[in-house]
Design a protein around this nucleic acid. Sequence first.
DNA 1: TACCAGGTCGCTG
DNA 2: CAGCGACCTGGT
Length: 288
Amino acid sequence: MILKIKNLNLKQIAESGQCFRWKQIKIDDNGKLFYAIPAFGKILVAVQDGEDFDFSCSKKEWDKVWKDYFDFTTDYESIEKQILNGNDDHLKDAFKVGYGVRILKQDLWEMIFSFMVSQNNNIKRISKSIDMFCERVHKKSELNLEELSKENRKAVLDYKFNEIYAFPLYNEVSLDLFDDASLGFGYRAPYLREICEYVSSDPCWFNFFYGLNYDDAMKELMSRKGIGMKVANCICLFGLHHTDAFPIDTHVKQLLDKYYSDGFDFEKYQGYAGIIQQYLFYYELLNK
DNA sequence: TACCAGGTCGCTG
DNA sequence: CAGCGACCTGGT
């Protein structure tokens, strides 16, 4: 399915640290990018060539599922205007460089689990752990390339990429998995085990969040062991789309000290501070 | 070798 | 309640 989209950049989203399971299948000589995007038990193959996109889904499925996943209900152009008309030069630079980054609307359970793994950890190890975890539960993800253009389908088929397994539901996970040190969860394993047990005993817990505002969602999340301020903010931002959430990790802390030593004006960006955070984070990452 | 990586917990004063 | 050391693990 072919689409022209201005403000979407797959590579930047993939590298902005909000998703741990996207796979770059290939990048061809002209810079055309191929990504495998696992979500909702499926794998969307997305091909980006500048503003031209080819997705392995029908228009109907795009409108119903993926458009929302890519957050096309948020008005990024309006945010762009506010940033570019503002007086924050550092943020303007960050926005220009990070143009096309969006806050994905990802599955809440996956975000809770993934960001619990992420604490005091690095991206490479986080992704590896989560991939092994998915593989161990071994539920296949649906991959269908029918809707991809002939040329792109061929390119994908020519390129061997590893099987991608669906992110397991909490009730599909055997608790013994958390005794297996080879998954690399380290000291977080007991926290993960506990959250699995907890949500299995009370699956309505997830629905409960949809009635909570940002502050109450934070409190509820942080009542669980292994979820502190930073992880709870990530879950709020990436799993509940509370765009006020502003996760402060070591990198963001450093950049705030560096560029905003007089204090960062959160009020100024009320309602979308989390989106600002994403640009700042990504920009800082590139400058390292 | 020691320190860091998208932190959090539990204990201390 | 702010500060601080410990913590799985793989990479420099």
